[in-house]
Structure formats: structure tokens, C-alpha cells
Simulated scan of single mutants.
Amino acid sequence: MPSSSATPDASSTPPAEAAALSVNALSERLVTRLVEDAARFGASVSHTDAGTVLVDAGVAAPGSVAAGVLIARICMGGLGHVTVRESLDMQALWPSMIEVRTSWPVLACLGSQYAGWSLSATKEQTGGKKFFSLGSGPARALAVKEPLFAELNYHDSHTRGALVLEVDRLPPQVVIDKVLFDCNLSPARLTLVTTPTHSVAGTVQVVARVVEVALHKTHVLGVPLSEVVEGGGSAPLPPPAPDGIQAMGRTNDAILYGGRVHLTVKHDAAAKQLAAELPASTSRDYGRPFADIFTAFNYDFYQIDPALFAPAEVWVSSLESGKTWHGGRVDAALLHDQWNAQP
């Protein structure tokens, strides 16, 4: 999803407690678990000649829902809880739901989870096909290559890092070298995790961005990020589609038409504004499956109305008054039309 390029704002500065946290240190044990238990998670591990760890969680390896949950927690810098809840109640929105919660929403979602680091290489650089991926996860905070980090006033300095790439092949050496240089890491201290959108793990880790999407739109709306003190949400977990565009469409639809988020903010004014302006239904492009929208705009994210990238439904509670405001709605019919087998 497109990143904002707003100018630095002191109101976005995190509290001192957040600045003291290292998202790479907090997620390191999760990365170790993924690598050491790779076979159990349906992943495979390889190393470059220099020792960089490459985890395949959906390119050639099958991956799994469990792998996707763990990778989503890594993406959140160890500051989020991610679970899968199952319900076969016919009144439920969908049988499998991803649930996410964090007490550090700005740092976990924007300082770590947000896929904001653009990594690319030409076919000349790779010796074959050109490469492009958006990097997400804690190593972003080591490199701080995005303007967003100036607003967050956050820079991690841990000596190990992990980055998640949503792409259908392992990264070429030229991209690995760029990440190492920008993160100031020795090769053996970097782990790169690859999760294609059409894979099981990739679907999970994208849908687990339901709260992150809400934080990003909060940022786009100009509400000070320092307002948001807690965040939780859920979204349906669809089966991945074999076609890349349809797989991307399903993960986006899960959030845009099935995502529900509850934010806690400091003041009533912010709660009222977010309840009114945050839901995806405020967008001019709302109402069609995302794959159709993406195709209509010539496969260019940046032509799509940025207001679309948001959860379907929000509740926003204010610490100032103790009141909660509600906005948006879930469109279960659209999801079932897209995902269910037709007679």
C-alpha cells in the first residue's frame, strides 16, 4: 500500500518508552524459532555464501498457517499478538479469522510491520529477471530509508535484523547486499523471509495487517499518531488463490470488506474523526472486489484512491470521555460471492 510522505510532525513522536524498545531484539527469538523449527512450519532454510539466512515460506516450500502467524508476529517486531480463531457457526462471517492485538500500535504497525521499504534490481543487476519487492518487518527500523521514520523519530540499532519480502522468488545477491549495507549488518546477522501472496503463509501475514492498515490511514488522515494507544482487530482468512492478482485481491478484500478494528485514542475529537473517516467505505473506489479495481487502474496501486486502504468497520474509544464511536460496515455478501464455490 502506498506510503505517506508528510513532513515530520512532533505530534507523531512516540513516548520515550517506545523509543527505548528494539523491534529487532524483541523479534529475534521469533526469528530463531522460525529458522530452527523450519520443517515443522513447512518452510526451508538456506544460506548465502557469506552466511545470510534465507527462509522460504512459500516459494518452493509449502509453508503453513502456523508459519504465517509466526511471520506476522516477526513483522510486528515482537510487539503484537496474532492468532487464528476457528468457528463453524453458520452465522459467523467466515470459518477462519485472524485476530491481532498490540499495546504498541504505532511502533509495531508502522515502525515495523508496514511494507514500506522498496527493494528492486534490474535484470542486468540480477543476471536474469528484474526483481521488485516491498520489505516489511523490523529491519526497516535499522535502515530507516523511509520518510516515515523521521516522523516516528525512531531508529533501531540492534546488531541482528529480519526482513520479510512478499515476492515469489528468493532475493538476488544485489538486493541482499543493499539490505546489509543499509542496515549496517554483517551477512550472518541478517535473516530474509520470503512469503508470496499466493502462498498460505503469505495470505496469513498480509491479512494480519488489519490493524496496520488502520494505523496507516490514521496517518494519511492527519490524525496525530501519538493519539493511538491501543489497537486490535480481526479479518477473515481466505484460502489463497493460485493466480497472483486474485490472491492479492482476496487478502485486500479480507480487510477492506471484512476487517474490523478497535482503536483506543486519547481524545474525543480524534475518536469522532476516525470513526467517520477511517472506514474503507469512505473511498470513491469502494464496492468492487479489489482485483477488479486493481485491473481497472492498469495494475497501478498509486492510481487507486488511498482512502480505500482501510478496515471495513471501526470502533474508536476515547480515554478522555470513555465513549466509543463506530463507523463503517462489513460486506459479507461481497466476500462470499468472491470466495465460495458457485453451484
Rank of each mutant, 00 (worst) to 15 (best):
G128H: 10
S12K: 07
S11A: 11
H158A: 10
M97D: 09
T191Y: 01
V84P: 13
A296N: 14
L180M: 13
T324R: 00
A241T: 01
S64Q: 14
A20K: 08
T32C: 05
T218D: 02
L134M: 12
V200C: 05
W104M: 04
R33S: 11
V167S: 13
T194P: 06
H158C: 00
V69M: 12
V179D: 14
G259P: 00
F297D: 12
I255E: 06
A312C: 02
E313S: 07
A25S: 00
S157A: 11
A6V: 13
M76D: 14
G327K: 01
L335Q: 12
V55L: 03
A280L: 06
A16S: 09
P279Q: 00
R73N: 00
A296L: 11
I293V: 15
R101G: 15
G233C: 04
V210L: 05
S133Y: 10
A254D: 05
P306I: 08
E86R: 14
R73S: 08
N252Y: 14
A60C: 11
Q91S: 15
V65E: 14
T102K: 01
L165F: 07
V175H: 12
G127I: 11
T203K: 04
V204T: 09
I71P: 07
K323E: 14
V207C: 01
P279I: 12
L334T: 06
S133T: 12
P8F: 00
